[in-house]
Design a protein around this nucleic acid. Structure first.
Lengths: 139, 139
DNA sequence: TTCAAAACCTAGTAAACCGATAGGATATAA
DNA sequence: TTATATCCTATCGGTTTACTAGGTTTTGAA
C-alpha cells in the first residue's frame, strides 16, 4: 500500500507542475486545493526540497517550485524518495537490497523468483512515467 | 512491502507443492525446513485452509495438503487472501475498492492514473504465475 | 522599521499494524 | 490410551503511520 505521505507528495508535485508560470506555490494553496492537512504537507514538501526535487523561497510571495522540468522527473525517483523501495521484498530491491534472514539461497526461493518479475513490471511503468505524464489531464 | 505472513504463506504452499506424493505435510516440517516460527506458520496455514487453498488432517500422520493442482492456483488469488489488495491504492483496487476521502474526481487524479498502470502490470505478472511456476527450480 | 506571510524545525502522540508468543482444546492414528 | 497433529483465542511489545502543536527564521512590502 502506498502511504498517504507518498500520495500527497505526488499530488503536490503534480499540482505545482500544472501551473504554467514558475512562480513559487504556497503550501497553503496546495493544501486547500488538494485536501491535504497543511502541517503534514509542509513536512512532505520539506522532504522533497531536501531531496532536490523542489526549491523554496521563504517569506511573503514565497513557496515551492520545481527545480527540473516535469518531463525530466521520473516517477521511480519520486517514489523511492517518499516511499522507499519499489520492490515488495528487500532481497529483490535494486536500491535498498537486504538479505532475508530466513532464506538460505535466493536462487531457489519461490518468493524471490516471483517478486523479481513484479519489481521489473513496476519499474517499467514507473520509469516510463514522468511527472509531466501524470500531471496533465489530456489523453 | 510484502508482509512476512504472505511471504511465509507462499513459501509454505510452494514447499507442499514440491512434494511428489500427496500425503499431508506437517507444519513442523515446513517450519523447520523454511525457517519459519512454527506457531506463526500454524496460523497462516489455518488461514489458507479456511480460504480453501489447503485441506488438513488432524492427528498422527496429519498435516496440510493442496486441494487444487499447483498449476491451477494463480498467485493473484494467494496474495489477495494473505496480503489483501494487489493495488497500491484502494481507489484502484478491483477486489477491495474504496473511494479516497480527499479525492473529488478519480478521472483527473494523477496518482490514480499512475497506480492503475502499476496495478495492471502487477496483475499481469501475478496472474500469469501459478504455484507450479514458482515452486519448481528448473528453468 | 515594522508587520505579516511564508518556509523551516522539533517534538510528541493516538491509533493501527506486525510478527510473533502463550496456553491450551480438539481430533485422530496407532 | 497415548502421542501427535491441527485448531482456537488471547495477548503483547515494537514499529510505523498520519498527523498535531508550537514554535523560529526569513523575507517582501507598507
Amino acid at each position: 500500500m502506498l502511504s498517504k505521505k507518498t500520495k500527497y507528495g505526488i499530488k503536490a508535485m503534480a499540482y505545482i507542475a500544472r501551473k504554467k508560470d514558475r512562480k513559487p506555490v504556497q503550501a497553503s494553496e496546495i493544501s486547500e486545493s488538494e485536501n491535504i492537512s497543511q502541517k503534514f504537507l509542509e513536512s512532505i514538501l520539506l522532504e522533497l526540497r531536501k531531496s532536490m526535487f523542489l526549491g523554496s523561497k521563504k517569506g511573503k510571495g514565497g513557496g515551492y517550485y520545481l527545480i527540473k522540468e516535469p518531463a525530466d522527473i521520473k516517477m521511480t525517483a519520486v517514489i523511492r524518495v517518499l516511499e522507499g523501495p519499489i520492490a515488495m521484498v528487500p532481497c529483490v530491491s535494486l536500491n535498498y537490497y537486504e538479505k532475508c534472514d530466513d532464506c538460505p539461497d535466493e536462487k531457489t526461493c519461490s518468493v524471490h523468483k516471483l517478486m523479481i518479475q513484479v519489481r521489473d513490471a513496476s519499474l517499467e511503468v514507473l520509469g516510463d512515467n514522468t511527472l509531466q505524464d501524470i500531471a496533465t489531464f489530456d489523453q
